[in-house]
Nucleic acid binder design. Structure first.
Lengths: 198, 198
DNA sequence: ACTTGACCGAATGGGTAAAATTGGTCTAGT
DNA sequence: ACTAGACCAATTTTACCCATTCGGTCAAGT
């Protein structure tokens, strides 16, 4: 299939129905367990309770499914992040919740053996990957900056704290512990970076 | 060669001369560039300016060279860490120097493609690996605890700061930036974690 | 709005056997 | 305290073939 046709399909098809989203939700765990390469179209179709051709009525191919899947995954995650950060809890709880919604969910979604999903994602759409990273860091920064619970200084601005927090979160790739324990590490990082009391 | 013979040689040979250390220093960059598996005994011998057989007069085999090499590498690194932390500079500079001597040196020593050195090390001697990690974290903790420049609290003890700092340092594996830039990230982490002004 | 099933070209994954490397040893020097 | 070089067993690499699989398409149904 030519690139032009692909572009048309993906430009016309999306957003038309909640069916796409249903498919993407069903498909995510498969990518998360086996990675991009080792996931077959049949497995995706089975997960979505569709035939192989049924899938092609919604997506132009494997790459588009994957891209849309990751896009939805991050969109959803960021929505949770926003919801948590916009909530009424103390900043500490909100930050921990946000970090857990982002990095913790990664940890739970992607099997250690299937981290090629990350590489594939950055390889297929590096600018999108950068966009999502920046989006999340921006949320952290704003939440910290807006809070009156934490005092910043020229040497330690809200952005500085957010960046360091983000850096700590990146450790999820190395982490071998379950999400609950990882969350405790995140809690400590939040406490230290933002000097929030218990 | 039997394990018994190996044990005898490695028990008798070490520490007898500075020659071993010279060899180990010469050999480290080779392991750092090609990893354990892809490094050949000939390359090691060439790097040490010895014949292959000359090497065997000092070490019982590839594994012993590697183990001793890593051991010396970490010993040296920790010595630098101790020297820096024990110096007269303000805590901030000392911590940055210590983090750079540890993680920054890793970044510079081990080629991204040769990270199998880490796995091999933890696989061959997991207890030693754990020992060195703990040793470094301990140094950080003590330096922070001993300083009057940083005030701790029950929610943010010296150990907490050290742990988070360590977690930030682990990002070196993901880092694609040169050591100088990585050092700036470390500096920010130190500032934030210990609330040290500029 | 789907399913079924056949189909294609390309990529992939065994399986294998020859060829090259490698870690390590031995001997004979100097 | 080394080097030179032959040497071995074991592993690794390479090349090749074959079967399978996979992504994607097409035609015909319901």
């Amino acid at each position: 299939m030519s690139h032009a046709v692909k572009a048309i399909r993906s430009a016309v098809a999306p957003g038309l129905g909640p069916k796409r989203d249903t498919i993407l939700d069903a498909v995510l765990p498969v990518f998360g367990r086996f990675g991009f390469r080792k996931t077959t179209m049949e497995e995706l179709a089975d997960a979505a309770k569709l035939s192989k051709q049924g899938l092609y009525l919604h997506f132009s191919g494997k790459e588009e499914i994957f891209a849309a899947c990751i896009e939805k995954y991050l969109t959803d995650s960021l929505a949770v992040v926003d919801a948590v950060l916009g909530g009424g809890e103390p900043l500490q709880e909100r930050l921990i919740g946000a970090m857990d919604a982002w990095f913790g969910r990664h940890l739970e979604t992607f099997h250690p053996q299937a981290f090629d999903v990350i590489e594939t994602g950055t390889l297929m759409a590096p600018e999108r990957t950068q966009y999502w990273k920046n989006a999340f860091r921006q949320r952290l920064t704003r939440a910290i900056a807006a809070s009156r619970e934490v005092k910043s200084s020229p040497a330690c601005t809200a952005k500085d704290m957010a960046e360091v927090l983000f850096q700590c979160g990146l450790a999820w790739k190395e982490s071998l512990v379950p999400r609950t324990e990882f969350r405790r590490e995140l809690a400590r990082a939040v406490r230290v970076c933002c000097r929030l009391e218990l």
